[in-house]
Lab assay of single mutants.
Amino acid sequence: MATKAVCVLKGDGPVQGIINFEQKESNGPVKVWGSIKGLTEGLHGFHVHEFGDNTAGCTSAGPHFNPLSRKHGGPKDEERHVGDLGNVTADKDGVADVSIEDSVISLSGDHCIIGRTLVVHEKADDLGKGGNEESTKTGNAGSRLACGVIGIAQ
């Protein structure tokens, strides 16, 4: 089992970053940390998408990683996509320092995120509470600013 993974985020604009993942036990939580720069100040949706395909930019990554066919939600919700990591918060300089621990994603097994795409979005994720159909699919997080395929790390 891989215990570490990394993702280099890039987009068409100024947004870029490096996100690290570490899972010490196969059924334990995954620590997610790193930094994203070039964002507007505020909240930005942060999700693992189904495919590791960036051939047409971030759009070819498909929908959120959702092997259990659930509705979109927040990272602490029972009803959520596996890939729903909530929001990252950018400061006035456009930098989001990421520090998350998640017990639904994994670096092995059915919820493995390796080979899938991590995406940072234009807007805040409403965590499935926006009151419309799009909220239950995407959290109304808007366009995909930057993305990268999650790969095994040393």
Rank of each mutant, 00 (worst) to 15 (best):
V32F: 13
H121Q: 01
F51P: 00
T40H: 12
G139A: 01
L68M: 15
E122I: 07
D53C: 03
K92A: 15
G131E: 12
V30G: 05
C112E: 14
A61D: 02
T55N: 03
A56K: 05
C7T: 12
A141V: 03
K123Q: 11
E101Q: 08
E133F: 12
A56E: 09
G115N: 02
E79K: 11
V98N: 03
L85E: 02
L107A: 03
T40I: 11
K92C: 12
R116K: 03
G17D: 04
K10S: 14
N27R: 05
T117P: 01
A146F: 15
V6K: 12
E25T: 07
S60K: 02
L39V: 08
F65R: 01
K10C: 15
K31L: 07
K137F: 06
D12Y: 08
K4G: 09
K137A: 04
V8Y: 13
S143F: 06
A96E: 08
V104P: 06
A96T: 06
R144N: 00
V119R: 00
G34I: 05
V95N: 15
G38D: 15
I113D: 03
A56T: 11
I150P: 03
A2S: 14
T3V: 05
I150G: 01
N66E: 13
S60I: 01
V88C: 07
D91S: 09
K24I: 12
P67E: 03
S108G: 14
S35N: 09
D110R: 10
A61P: 02
L9F: 14
C58V: 02
T117A: 07
G42H: 06
A96L: 05
E41H: 15
P75C: 09
G38H: 06
I105S: 09
S99T: 13
G73K: 06
H64R: 01
T59R: 03
S26N: 07
E41S: 10
D102E: 12
D53V: 00
V95P: 12
G86H: 03
G74C: 09
F21V: 04
N20R: 12
V30L: 15
P75D: 06
A61Q: 01
K71C: 08
G131D: 05
I150N: 04
I152T: 15
I105N: 03
G130N: 09
V104N: 05
T3H: 08
G73L: 00
T59F: 04
N54T: 13
F21I: 15
V149T: 06
E25P: 15
D126S: 04
I19E: 00
A124R: 10
H49P: 00
L127G: 08
H47C: 02
V104W: 11
F21G: 03
W33Q: 09
G128S: 07
H47P: 02
H44N: 15
H44P: 00
F46L: 12
I36G: 01
V98A: 09
D53G: 00
H121C: 02
L43H: 14
G34T: 04
T55Y: 03
G128N: 04
V6R: 10
T59W: 04
D110P: 07
T55I: 03
L145S: 09
D53A: 03
W33M: 12
T117M: 09
R144P: 02
P14E: 05
I100W: 14
K4H: 05
L145D: 08
L39W: 06
G52V: 00
K92T: 08
G94Y: 06
Q16R: 14
I18R: 10
C7G: 08
D84H: 02
T138K: 03
P29A: 15
L9D: 00
G148D: 05
C112H: 15
I19D: 02
I100N: 14
V32M: 14
A5Y: 12
R70F: 11
D102C: 09
C147G: 02
H64K: 01
